[in-house]
Write a protein that binds this DNA or RNA. Structure first.
Lengths: 337, 337
DNA sequence: TTTATTGTTGATAACGTTATCAGTAATGAT
DNA sequence: ATCATTACTGATAACGTTATCAACAATAAA
């Protein structure tokens, strides 16, 4: 059997194609009797509208593109799943597109995506969402987009973010509550907004508890395992080594565990370690790592909702939505000896 | 400036729209002179065809859907990236769709995807590609699909696979070459084809080296960290515990490391451990885990190529393409004491 | 009652491409 | 020189939907 079209539905329901279209699009001014008839016909024929035809005529494709360049697979996949769930609910499809945020061809690459696959909007993950040229280009082309965890909040497009500053503050306070006062810090990659927010939260907690900031136990990492290893080695070979280390993500926290193991420093007895992100490794390692979990899935759902609102030119409540993170205590932390 | 259409190109190139279309689709029988003119006009107008209109008229969407249900984020993302690269090269777009292979609604869910977003074909990852009802449904609907690492090879659709049996054989032989003769094995989830192939490779290596299969040191895992932990505990608390353990994936190998640490068994000095998959954790843990890396990216590219061939009804060389894996030796293995 | 407004409906055009088919020019065969 | 074939080109229909607009019926206002 060939696929049913609106014409078929119209014939069966004994109305015009336009009326069928009206019903399917929830347009007003159709008598309930006819609505019933149309719905019955749709069901009887198992009719689904052709998204291509819909898109061609309606100047929209019902496709949303997720643009990512973040190398953290667990994060991206969770984001993707959350975004997709919301897309499906709203009748959209999700297309994905990885890109290299360091490449000089980034703009060209995104530009070509906009040409070859007509999408109604973009979701930008960090650090893409802090690329001013990219934002400017999308603005100029008039393509709606939303941002996830941007650092620069100047732009007027909607975004969601997790409260990294607060979460970093909380986890630092947690370490302090365990009696730690010498708490090393490993920063993330300077290009990422989260890096600065997490560091700010760390500083606020220290300040509030009247612990001076000791810059000799603050190291610049890059969010990679290798960078964490280098920093950990520096931190742990100092004569007065910290009794706890806050690594800006779990990869670097795992690296701290490695260096500690090599140096025969027992965790958590002699050194407490916390990470950030609740990456898979934080559970797959022993001791498992105390960390912060962002509600990634919910953030993704929320941001898609914002995007679709923007596409449909519906008003939306807030440009910004902030999500609270959750502290997950595991086995890498214990009271200070 | 509004987007250029074929009409505009035709006007500028002083030919008919059909001739433009012919040139763009590489159809024969257009004089070189006109081809030149068209190409010049396309370039001058920066023209790109509208994929929606193309799809509507041509009965194809240039969209390929990647269907996955595998919970391994690193694996999926690498697959996705590889597939996408090939899609772009061939002018296709990639849509993704996670689904739950245990859900009774799986068929319905996939069915609804086929209705709401017209795609030209599917990529099925395992274990979805071993679901007979799913294959039957796609067959009945006449939607082309390809499979990645299927277990049941009965179906006539093309597929790619990595040679799990060989790789498992090689890594087992590697352990034997280090002097190990009591090698424990933790199986994967029985629903996955890879589980059986890896076990077969293990058995073949033992047989070839005249080592009897000792079923008391073969445990049934589920590919999860938790299942690995349970199996490891059983294996390591036996009186004659094995001197090496082959876990069917890296998550379970990481679990072995955890149990060993808790039982004060030093790795690799007292126990060698190997995993499979080259998951991120295998590098982020200490000691880092000797493992097997599948050429996931290349497999994805190859499978997309097969799919597009099938979509275009072009002949393809081989139904099956097999890829060799790579043994990556790290720090979790050493000669038997 | 008459007029203005609102609600309801459908015929037809339009979205931007590819497919069909017919027509003309060029080439080859007889 | 004539006819058959092949190469080339374009006018127009078609894909399946939504948008425009006109028409008419029902209701409210005068």
């Amino acid at each position: 059997m060939a696929k049913a079209t609106i014409k078929d539905v119209a014939r069966v329901a004994e109305v015009s194609v336009k009326t069928v279209s009206r019903v399917l699009n929830n347009e007003p001014n159709v008598r309930p009797v006819l609505q019933e008839k149309v719905h019955a016909a749709v069901k009887a024929l198992d009719f689904k509208r052709n998204p291509l035809a819909r898109g061609l005529r309606g100047q929209q494709s019902f496709i949303i593109t997720l643009l990512y360049s973040n190398p953290n697979p667990g994060y991206i996949l969770e984001l993707q799943n959350g975004a997709l769930a919301q897309c499906i609910e709203q009748g959209y499809n999700l297309q994905v597109h990885p890109c290299d945020h360091n490449s000089p061809d980034l703009l060209k690459s995104v530009e070509s995506i906009t040409r070859y696959s007509s999408q109604d909007g973009f979701i930008l993950t960090h650090p893409l969402c802090d690329n001013k040229e990219l934002l400017a280009m999308l603005d100029e082309k008039g393509i709606p987009f939303v941002r996830i965890s941007p650092f620069t909040q100047e732009h007027s497009s909607p975004y969601v973010m997790s409260d990294d500053e607060s979460a970093a503050y909380e986890i630092t306070k947690y370490l302090i509550s365990l009696g730690h006062s010498s708490i090393g810090f490993i920063k993330g990659h300077p290009d990422f907004g989260a890096t600065h927010k997490r560091y700010q939260g760390y500083q606020r907690a220290l300040k509030e508890m009247a612990i001076g900031l000791d810059e000799t136990i603050v190291k610049q990492g890059l969010f990679t395992f290798e960078s964490g290893e280098t920093c950990a080695r520096q931190l742990l070979s100092q004569k007065d080594r910290p009794s706890a280390i806050f690594a800006s993500n779990d990869y670097m926290a795992a690296a701290v565990l490695k260096v500690a193991a090599q140096m025969k420093i027992s965790i958590p007895a002699e050194l407490s370690v916390v990470g950030y992100d609740n990456a898979p490794v934080s559970q797959q390692i022993w001791p498992s790592i105390t960390t912060v979990k962002q509600p990634i899935q919910r953030m993704a759902e929320s941001v898609v909702e914002k995007l679709i609102r923007q596409i449909k030119k519906q008003p939306f409540d807030d440009i910004q939505t902030k999500f609270e993170c959750e502290l997950i205590t595991r086995n890498s932390t214990s009271p200070c000896a």
